[in-house]
Simulated scan of single mutants.
Amino acid sequence: MSTETPTEHRCVKCNRLLRNPSPDGLGPKCRRMIRRAGKAPELAGYKPHQLEKAVENLRQGGLIPLRKSSKNRVYLAVSSDGTSAYRTARAACTCPAGLKAVHVCWHRIAAHIFDLAS
């Protein structure tokens, strides 16, 4: 007889209980909202290749909410090669490109998309 306890899987965005686990950690409604938010007119100023990278990162579950407040939402963003993680928000990021502040990194764009989908 098996003594395994069923594991609860919750959406990383809204914390709802998921019936089926998903590789990106998102529920179907949150995934749909993120897909729609990725095409929002507010994101028109970003470079297309950065926007694609941000959306792909969100689909793979590479952005994890750390703190949810009404003003500052801080996330943990996994790098594209998966070897490191950075703290990011819409205003700043701790990645090398974000620290140089020459241009907006795709981690910040992902945070922007995640906030729009809220």
Rank of each mutant, 00 (worst) to 15 (best):
G82E: 13
R90N: 05
P41G: 07
K47M: 08
C93S: 03
R36E: 11
K53V: 04
P23G: 11
W106F: 13
R73T: 07
P23H: 11
A91M: 03
K47H: 13
A54V: 03
F114K: 01
F114G: 01
K13S: 09
E8D: 15
C95E: 02
P23A: 15
W106A: 06
I113F: 03
L66S: 06
C105I: 10
L99Q: 14
T3P: 00
H103K: 10
L51H: 08
L66N: 10
V12C: 07
C93L: 14
A54D: 04
K71Y: 12
K29T: 09
M33G: 06
I113G: 13
L99K: 15
R67P: 02
R67V: 12
A92H: 10
L17C: 09
S70Y: 06
V104G: 02
T5P: 01
W106P: 00
C30F: 06
R16F: 04
C30R: 01
G62Y: 02
R31W: 07
R87P: 03
L58G: 04
L116V: 08
E4L: 07
S70E: 10
V104H: 06
K68G: 04
R32A: 15
P23N: 13
A54R: 02
A97F: 10
A54W: 00
N57D: 04
M33D: 15
E56G: 10
A89Q: 07
V78C: 05
K29S: 09
T3D: 04
G98D: 12
N15D: 15
L76F: 07
K39C: 09
L116K: 12
V74A: 04
P41C: 09
V102M: 03
N72G: 09
S84D: 10
A91H: 08
R10D: 06
T5S: 08
Y46I: 02
V74H: 01
T7K: 11
M33Y: 07
V12Q: 12
L51Y: 03
Q60T: 06
R10F: 05
C30Q: 02
L99V: 09
K53W: 05
W106S: 12
I113E: 10
R16L: 09
A37N: 09
S2G: 03
G62Q: 04
P23F: 09
A91S: 10
A85S: 14
L51Q: 09
K29Q: 12
T3F: 05
L99C: 08
K53S: 13
S79Y: 02
E52H: 08
H112P: 05
E42Q: 15
R90I: 15
E8A: 12
C11E: 10
Y75T: 01
S2F: 00
L18T: 14
C11M: 10
M33H: 11
I109S: 01
S70N: 10
C93Y: 13
W106R: 07
Y86I: 00
E4N: 04
T88C: 13
V102K: 07
P41E: 15
A97L: 14
S70K: 08
E56V: 00
H9K: 03
D81G: 03
A77W: 06
S84F: 03
L18W: 12
M33I: 01
